[in-house]
């Protein structure tokens, strides 16, 4: 109960700050608008207002504050505008409609999940190799680290172009970018997890004359589960980013990335923000889902609740 109050307080503070930020952000636009409608504002012309500070303009034209929250194309849309847009494009639109955010989210989601599956699989395989082979440890790990230092925004167009040139398009290039981003946390976490058993636990298996295989399935893999889930949560969020980034350079017509792009072409800030929120909500839902699976798995494994 107490924590709920705390959470709600923080949320309220964020929203209040957001509304407050809308005022200076949008004031010039509002003043231009009302001036055209014949209302008297100070200073009187757009030219004079251009070099004025926003805060000063707000102070001189307090009557316009209310309008900063209801503009059609604000620089910064107010929370309720984003909420209304979200509501209209999810609940009120048919899922098949090109204007439905659910439709776009589902396009991005499928690329995310495919990329996540590829990235996770690849990450686990690499980790197993790294833990069992010194050669792989020394040859793969540096490349894995280097791969993550290249900005994805630079790499994504190249991946798409290269794949396009060999006839691969659609969901696959996006999934590849997703996988590229998500395999890394899985490798790192899984290597740590597979190496988690201490010397005593390994000695115990040695006294049983257990082979490497048995050591893997009976000790290393179960020990790595908490690490794996921590990595998966990072990985899925990275996958979503990858899928969205993968939609940007293609000028894709569907997906959350496409919505972001279209929104910025047409100055539809409300649309951009609602796509951003949709992405954030989607990421939160995916991470929460993984958290749930983690709970069930670790519970089954007898981990203390």
């Amino acid at each position: 109960m107490k924590s709920l109050v705390a959470v709600l307080t923080v949320l309220a503070a964020i929203i209040a700050f957001w509304y407050a930020a809308c005022v200076p952000m949008n004031i010039k636009g509002v003043l231009d608008q009302v001036e055209r409608a014949g209302v008297e504002v100070t200073p009187a012309t757009a030219k004079e207002r251009r070099d004025r500070g926003e805060i000063g303009l707000v102070a001189q034209n307090t009557f316009a504050i209310g309008d900063t929250w209801v503009q059609e194309r604000p620089r910064l849309p107010a929370p309720h505008q984003v909420a209304v847009e979200l509501w209209e494009t999810t609940v009120e639109k048919k899922i098949t409609s090109k204007r439905s955010l659910i439709y776009h989210a589902q396009v991005t989601l499928s690329a995310t999940l495919l990329g996540f599956a590829i990235g996770t699989g690849l990450g686990i395989l690499l980790a197993v190799g790294i833990v069992h082979s010194r050669v792989m440890d020394m040859s793969v790990m540096p490349w894995a680290i280097v791969s993550q230092t290249i900005p994805i925004i630079a790499l994504a167009p190249m991946i798409i172009v290269v794949l396009y040139s060999i006839g691969v398009q659609g969901i696959i290039p996006k999934a590849v970018i997703s996988a590229y981003l998500s395999f890394f946390p899985v490798v790192v976490g899984m290597v740590k997890g597979l190496r988690a058993p201490d010397a005593m636990q390994l000695d115990l298996l040695k006294t049983y004359n257990a082979n490497t295989n048995q050591g893997f399935w009976k000790l290393r893999l179960p020990s790595s589960m908490p690490y794996l889930f921590a990595s998966l949560k990072i990985g899925i969020a990275a996958s979503l980013v990858g899928a969205i980034v993968g939609e940007l350079p293609t000028g894709a017509v569907a997906g959350l990335g496409a919505r972001l792009l279209a929104g910025s072409y047409y100055g539809q800030t409300v649309q951009i923000w609602s796509a951003l929120f949709a992405a954030a909500i989607l990421a939160a839902a995916l991470v929460a889902l993984l958290g749930l699976i983690e709970k069930v798995v670790l519970n089954r494994m007898g981990v203390r609740a």
């Binding site: 005593m200 000695d203 006294t207 049983y208 004359n209 009976k218 000790l219 007898g302 981990v303």
Partner: peptide
């Protein structure tokens, strides 16, 4: 031989019975 370490070193994800089965499974 069977070896008993200073710490019990039971696998936390296995029940007591399953822990005891560990060497038996391996063997």
């Amino acid at each position: 031989y069977g070896y008993v370490f200073q710490a019990a070193g039971l696998y936390p994800w296995r029940t007591i019975a399953k822990n005891i089965k560990l060497p038996l499974e391996i063997m």
